[in-house]
């Protein structure tokens, strides 16, 4: 399946990654090659095969509704690149 630069650009935007023009060039060539390799899967007969989303046959793993201590707010904010009023600060979200 051919993958155009526009597609790579669109997908990069979905993934919120800004690509430099030279990255865009290289990635579209490389991704096309990789996707071509993936096409090998089309040979496999899977029409009656269920998908495996979880390899374990585990079922119904729960935790009890019991309060556990939360983190200290200082620890929560320690790694924050930008904070204000004990909250994380981001560029204004235009609603």
């Amino acid at each position: 399946m051919a993958i155009s630069k526009d597609t790579v650009k669109y997908v990069a935007h979905l993934a919120r990654i800004r690509l430099k023009p030279e990255e865009l060039d290289v990635f579209s060539v490389q991704l096309e090659e990789i996707l071509k390799y993936m096409e090998k899967l089309n040979e496999a007969e899977v029409s009656h095969i269920p998908p495996t989303s979880h390899i374990l046959s585990l079922k119904n793993v729960f935790r009890a509704d019991q309060v556990r201590p939360s983190l200290d707010v200082d620890a929560v904010l320690e790694n924050a690149p930008k904070k204000k009023d004990r909250q994380f600060s981001v560029p204004k979200v235009i609603a």
Binding site: V67, L71, V73, V76
Partner: peptide, 30 residues
């Protein structure tokens, strides 16, 4: 296991899981 409550100090009812910190994992409340 963070408590569900209103009107608490911002970010005081958080832990690695609900902050989505790297490495944390969810386990469902029964």
């Amino acid at each position: 296991g963070c408590a569900v409550e209103f009107g608490k100090e911002p970010n005081s009812l958080t832990c690695p899981v609900c902050l989505g910190l790297p490495g944390s994992l969810p386990v469902l409340n029964q």
